[in-house]
């Protein structure tokens, strides 16, 4: 069965999904990230076996949700900044490509300002950049979009706090339990070791996988540097109730 590319939702992973490996996901309570303080639950979460609600997902077909893979042109002009191409594969933990999966992407402009009324950072808006894209994976799980390298920006978490350069991603996958919102970072960013959001994930290797790699193969001559960012969604459980035997 083709994953995610059907015209409507359907149960595709009847055995459900494996739980996350310890340390590879952030906790709700991250003391260095101030906004978690009043927003993390105090009671333990209720673990539920995966049924039809968790193993099915909305089919976000390009017919219903029009693709928009190029953020560099808007309102009749070209966005300012360093043009880049970002590409990668969306796979599950067994290495299977997720086909026809929708990715929503959003980001700040080259000056580090979001085209959002809530962003009051004293940096210029770009009338030719809104910072949003939507793409779908192909049969091998590849996605690709063109954008402007975003800028770093300050935030109020602590004195002299700056977010590392990042691009936001939203993915749906083939099951509701695979839903993921994450951020892609850039290699060599000196702000990464200082960022409480990036560092909220305990496992160092899991953090490093949030950092894109420069890729000469994705780079287009005389046009734009290329970055590779692969995304892995949860793999299927071996048996329907494997999770009940763990922990």
């Amino acid at each position: 069965m083709t994953e995610g590319s059907a015209d409507r939702g359907r149960p595709q992973d009847p055995a459900g999904y494996r739980p996350p490996r310890p340390g590879t996901q952030p906790d709700y309570d991250a003391p260095d990230y101030g906004s978690t303080r009043l927003r993390h639950p105090l009671r333990p979460l209720l673990r539920v076996p995966h049924g039809p609600t968790e193993i099915s997902a909305p089919a976000m077909s390009p017919a219903l949700y029009a693709p928009a893979p190029d953020m560099t042109r808007h309102a009749g002009g070209e966005a300012l900044g360093e043009r880049i191409i970002v590409a990668g594969r969306v796979l599950d933990e067994d290495g299977r490509p997720l086909r026809g999966t929708m990715l929503e992407i959003w980001q700040a402009n080259a000056a580090g300002r979001y085209a959002h009324p809530g962003d009051t950072h004293d940096a210029p808006l770009d009338p030719h950049f809104t910072g949003q894209a939507r793409v779908f994976t192909d049969d091998e799980g590849w996605y690709r979009f063109t954008t402007i390298r975003p800028g770093a920006y300050p935030w109020g978490n602590h004195h002299n706090a700056w977010r590392p350069v990042h691009i936001h991603y939203s993915l749906f996958g083939a099951g509701f339990a695979q839903r993921l919102i994450t951020q892609m970072y850039f290699p060599g960013d000196p702000l990464l070791p200082l960022d409480p959001i990036f560092n909220a994930t305990p496992d160092a290797a899991a953090r490093e996988r949030l950092v894109a790699r420069f890729d000469l193969g994705i780079t287009r001559p005389n046009h734009a540097l290329g970055y590779r960012f692969d995304i892995v969604l949860r793999g299927r459980a071996a048996t329907p109730f494997e999770e009940e035997h763990e922990e």
């Binding site: 996350p20 490996r21 590879t24 996901q25 952030p26 990230y33 906004s35 796979l91 599950d92 933990e93 067994d94 290495g95 959003w106 700040a108 979001y114 085209a115 959002h116 809530g118 962003d119 809104t130 910072g131 949003q132 936001h168 939203s170 993921l180 919102i181 994450t182 951020q183 959001i197 990036f198 994930t201 290797a205 899991a206 953090r207 996988r209 949030l210 995304i231 892995v232 969604l233 949860r234 793999g235």
Partner: peptide
């Protein structure tokens, strides 16, 4: 392979 870490949607997800 290990599933990609989740990160906050942040305050500007309205884009």
């Amino acid at each position: 392979m290990v599933a990609t870490a989740s990160q906050t949607a942040g305050p500007y997800w309205h884009l």
